[in-house]
Amino acid sequence: MYSGNFEIKKRSSFILACAGVGKRMQLDYPKQFFEYQGKPLFLSPLLCAEKSEYVQEIIIASQEEYVEYIIKLCQEEGVHKLKCVVVGGKERQDSIYAALKKVGEKMDYVIIQDAVRPFCKERYLREAYEVLQEGYAGAVVGVAVKDTVKQISEESLVQETLNRNILFAAHTPQAFPKDILREAYKKAYEDKFLGTDDSSLVERLGYSVKIIKGDYDNIKVTTPEDLKMLNR
């Protein structure tokens, strides 16, 4: 397969983190199943992966009670790359680790995507692939911080004003060579380390991770206010 003159030599597994509870959304069901334009939120990034030449298999991590529903919906929507739906854990990290164990041995890279970031773009997957091909241990989509950021104490006192010119907000997708990501997850559990994203697990081992400049519309639906952004 080709993208212009760029030959795809490596195979990638796409993990969709779809096991969140979403208490802050004030819904009586997980936020990834909230319907946007008549479809659940998680379906949008899923179809992005399905259509991408940079993805060869898809693994979804979700709650046990939604596994059959997800499989049925994938069949209805023509998602042929789905390998399996695994049952997630208490933390997001647990869910990704469960999915990581199912990644095919023929896969070279792993791409991780939040189910509640509905505006995943093909270029993110392409650019992540290209970064890994350059030899980096990770690729993270992110955007420059617009606001002035203050570091504060436990008493809410300002300790320092950080240089926003070197600050980026990390999004997904995030991509890594399979073996490096497995190593990072194994070490995190050995050290009882809980990261806020997948890249933090890789970074702490000293590997180089590169930022891909994303778009500000690549929002994560976390609170009811975020729903307003879906219709912009």
Rank of each mutant, 00 (worst) to 15 (best):
E76C: 03
V79Y: 01
R92I: 04
R92T: 04
Q93S: 11
D94N: 12
I96E: 00
A99C: 10
A99V: 06
K102A: 10
V103M: 03
G104L: 14
E105T: 08
I112A: 07
Q113S: 05
D114Y: 07
A115F: 01
V116I: 15
K121Q: 15
R123V: 11
L125V: 09
L125C: 11
R126E: 14
E127I: 11
E127R: 15
Y129V: 07
V131Q: 10
V131I: 15
V131R: 11
Q133K: 10
Q133D: 14
Q133A: 05
A137V: 01
G138V: 09
A139Q: 11
V140T: 12
V141A: 12
G142L: 14
V143R: 03
V143M: 06
V145T: 06
V145M: 12
K146P: 00
V149T: 13
I152W: 08
I152Q: 13
E154M: 11
Q159H: 04
E160H: 10
L162Y: 08
L162H: 08
N163G: 02
I166P: 01
F168M: 14
A169Q: 08
A170N: 09
A170Y: 05
A170D: 05
H171A: 05
H171D: 04
T172C: 05
P173T: 05
P173M: 06
A175E: 06
A175D: 06
K178P: 01
D179R: 11
I180L: 01
L181V: 03
R182P: 00
R182Y: 00
E183T: 09
K186L: 04
K187V: 14
Y189Q: 09
D191P: 00
K192M: 01
F193Q: 00
F193V: 03
L194H: 12
G195S: 15
T196K: 10
D197E: 05
D197A: 10
D198E: 15
D198H: 03
S200T: 07
L201R: 15
V202A: 09
R204W: 09
G206H: 06
Y207H: 15
V209F: 13
